Simulated assay, not measured.
Amino acid sequence: MKAILIDDESHNLTNLQVLLNTYCPQVEVCALAHSAEQGKIAVNTYSPDLIFLDIQMPEKDGFDFLRSLNFYDFEVIFVTAFDYYAIQAMRFAAVDYLLKPINIKELVEAVNRGFKQHQLKSQSKQVEYLMDWFKVQSQKEEQRIALSTVEETRFAKVSEIIRCESSNNYTTFFLTDSSKLLVSKPIYEYDELLCGYGFIRCHQSHLINKSFIKSWLKEWGDFLLLTNGTQIPISRGKKQLVKEALKM
């Protein structure tokens, strides 16, 4: 994969280039750009498959850079310091990101995901969706979340998600249209992401949209009965949290 690196700090560019050369031999670094303007020139010159993009840069930041382009026929891995708002947006859009300082294992995993996307040539609209995410925050349009599976990236309304169920580092989403989507991310990421949208972590393996809770069953232990008839266990450690969320 041809890649360009965009960051206003030279030492960050050099460090990332060394890490890629050492641990990610499938990546060929074609250009280093110190600004959004240089990055745009590099995109037009090299037509990269992958872009490592810093968010916080002077004059124009990473999102300004993306807005300046007319196409997104490449994968993007964002590189950022701790910025909760930006990270929340990236999680909703299901794009990859790396926190500074860069962890080698996370770098390799992000590159491998980008490589698979590149091989499948499944150039999704995840970056476009990310840009739209910021617009949605100031509008009344209902929030959507990007759920990436092997076959597709589904943009689902939060209100369409009945529940999430964990299986090791995978999460299955159960939607109101009876579809199930298996996403290769752990449930704790979605717990943090969806807690502000009425979701309750009632068990280590279960995250529930409280809009679909019908009742609390107590006869054979503690379970939440959902409107579709599914019974979800409530762990002992989560009982008080669930009671508070349901105002019991």
Rank of each mutant, 00 (worst) to 15 (best):
I213D: 01
A81Y: 06
F199H: 03
G229Y: 13
N169W: 02
A33C: 10
L130A: 07
Q204N: 13
R144N: 09
P58N: 12
D54F: 05
K135G: 10
S205M: 02
M57N: 10
S10D: 15
I200H: 10
N44A: 11
S148A: 08
G196T: 10
Y197I: 00
I145K: 00
C30W: 10
P25M: 07
Y190H: 00
V136K: 05
S35D: 11
Y72V: 06
G39A: 08
T176D: 07
Y85N: 15
V79A: 13
P233T: 03
C195F: 01
F173M: 02
E59Y: 08
T230E: 05
Q88N: 14
S35R: 08
C195L: 08
E128W: 03
I77H: 05
K140G: 15
G62A: 03
K116P: 00
L32C: 09
K180F: 04
F92G: 05
A42N: 10
K2C: 08
P186L: 04
T227L: 12
K157Y: 14
N112H: 15
S122W: 06
A89I: 14
Q204D: 09
I187S: 00
M131G: 08
A110V: 14
D132T: 09
W216V: 08
N21T: 09
L175D: 14
Q26D: 11
T80S: 07
K40G: 09
I200F: 11
Y46W: 09
I77F: 08
I145R: 01
K210A: 01
A81R: 09
L99F: 10
L5W: 06
V158E: 12
Q117G: 15
D83F: 07
L66W: 03
A156L: 05
D222M: 04
N21M: 12
W216M: 13
T45Y: 06
L98F: 12
P233F: 02
N70K: 11
L50M: 11
G196K: 06
G39Y: 01
Y97W: 07
L69H: 01
Y85W: 13
E160W: 10
M131S: 11
D7M: 05
L69E: 01
I162K: 08
D83Y: 12
C164G: 14
E9C: 00
A3N: 03
Q137C: 12
G39D: 08
K214R: 11
P233H: 03
L107Q: 01
A245W: 13
I4K: 06
E165K: 07
P48T: 05
Q240F: 04
L175E: 11
L181C: 01
Q137D: 04
Q204I: 12
A156G: 01
H118F: 15
D132L: 15
S35N: 15
S166P: 04
V27A: 08
S35K: 13
K40D: 10
R201Q: 03
L20G: 13
H206S: 03
Q38N: 02
S10Y: 12
I213T: 00
T230L: 00
Y23Q: 02
S68L: 10
